[in-house]
Computed example of a mutant assay.
Amino acid sequence: MGQRRFGRAMEAVREYRASRTIPEDLHGRGGMDEMLAQITDGLDKMFAILDHSEYKARAAPVQVRTLDMVVSEKMAICVDENVVGLTFRRADGADVPPWRAGSHLDVELPSGRRRQYSLCGDPRETDAYSIAVRLVPDGGGGSVEMHALEVGDRVSITGPRNAFPFVASGSALFVAGGIGMTAIIPMIRKAREVGMDWHLVYSGRTTESMPFLDEVSTWEQDRVTVRTDAVDGLPGAADLLRDAPDGGSVYCCGPPPMIAVVREGITATSATRLHYERFSAPPVVAGESFSVELARTGTVVDVASDETALDAVRRVRPGVPYSCRQGFCGTCKVRVLAGVPEHRDRRLSDDERADHMLICVSRSAGEQLTLDL
């Protein structure tokens, strides 16, 4: 009788746990209630003992470390879009830490710039990491420096980290825009491997500007929709979400306008979860103008209502460090000497928020902040 009661309790907890999420974060993903997860672990163990079966503890998280890497391969992936593929191997010849679809690397370049790139290789390849980088000549300089790397050059890499996790079960629609395909392609490879019900909508300016299209053309074409702005026009929600699965998930990676369309249109579908990742900074929402004083020089810069403090500071301090521009990597953390920040990040702890802010997304609750810059 006791075992049956525990069985019913276990099922109830599992169902409740599956339905409990915290509010969606920057990437559209939720997280399990940690206390409930611990209770579930305890019940798992207790029920396993009663049932005389093996208790399988949850796997430990992947260790994140900084590695000295060497460029082992460099190749052009998409000439029209200036996308280059780079493969890195450890300088000491050892295997790389494991990763899963959706993971990215933090690459520290010789200049000190730190940038993040999605892994687009094969997780079963244990001795190398592969990424693809689109050249943005008028960007922050990171892509230009990445394109200048040659075979034999060394860089420092931290990771892998996963801010865009993929669950290889059920049904899924993948929506990719341009270079956003780098994050999506390992997911689809895995979906095909395990026999998931999946569809892909891949959009770009022209077919010549879309990386990995050669591989995409070898997949089941009844599951693939390729759209180009040149032929089909800019896609709307109906174009991107036509195959959103009933009760399934949507994974989206691409430019901000595409993500905005998907976020607005997802509620009209029967899909239950949306996961997304940006490759550029999100637009500022509900911003108020304020000023920032750079304490080390006394320079005061104005931050417009539709720009970030990072963008404003870079006008006078172009070398200020940053990476994700989305409030999750922590590279642009700055000490606040005066004023009250309006925190919009999902990285800092409560203690850190007392006297620090991430200037890529957070703003000021008043008219001025003084930063330790």
Rank of each mutant, 00 (worst) to 15 (best):
Lys333Phe: 04
His343Lys: 00
Asp345Ile: 11
Ser323Trp: 10
Val316Pro: 08
Ser349Arg: 03
Met357Arg: 01
Arg317Trp: 14
Pro341Val: 01
Arg315Trp: 09
Gly327Phe: 10
Arg344Val: 06
Asp345Ala: 04
Leu358Ile: 11
Glu342Pro: 00
Arg347Gly: 01
His343Ile: 00
Val334Lys: 03
Arg353Ile: 02
Pro318Val: 04
Ala354Tyr: 05
Gly327Glu: 12
Ser323Phe: 06
Arg317His: 15
Val340Ala: 14
Ala338Gln: 10
Ala354Val: 05
Val336Asn: 07
Arg344Leu: 03
Leu358Val: 10
Ser349Glu: 11
Cys324Tyr: 07
Pro318Ile: 04
Arg335Cys: 07
Met357Lys: 02
Asp345Arg: 14
Lys333Val: 07
Cys332His: 06
Gly327Trp: 11
Met357Ala: 07
Leu348Gly: 08
Arg347Ala: 08
Gly339Pro: 02
Val320His: 13
Leu337Arg: 08
Gly319Ile: 08
Arg317Ser: 15
Val340Glu: 15
Val320Leu: 13
Arg347Cys: 10
Glu352Cys: 09
Leu337Ala: 13
Asp351Phe: 09
His356Asn: 08
Arg347Met: 10
Gln326His: 12
Val336Glu: 10
Gly339Asn: 11
Val340Trp: 02
Leu358Pro: 13
Asp350Phe: 01
Ala354Met: 08
Arg317Tyr: 15
Glu352Gln: 05
Arg347Phe: 02
Arg335Met: 10
Glu352Lys: 05
Arg353Asn: 02
Pro321Lys: 00
Gly330Met: 06
Val336Ala: 04
Arg353Ser: 04
Arg317Lys: 15
Arg325Ser: 15
Arg344Ile: 02
Asp351Val: 09
Val340Lys: 13
Lys333Thr: 08
Gly319Cys: 04
Ile359Asp: 01
Arg346Asp: 14
Ala338Asp: 15
Asp355Gln: 09
Pro321Cys: 03
Lys333Pro: 14
Arg325Glu: 15
Asp351Trp: 03
Pro321Val: 03
Pro341Ser: 00
Pro318His: 05
Arg315Phe: 09
Cys324Glu: 04
His356Lys: 08
Asp355Gly: 02
Tyr322Arg: 05
Asp345Pro: 11
His343Val: 01
Ala338Cys: 10
Arg344Asn: 05
Gln326Leu: 15
Pro321Thr: 05
Asp355Glu: 07
Tyr322Gly: 07
Arg344Ala: 01
Glu352Ser: 02
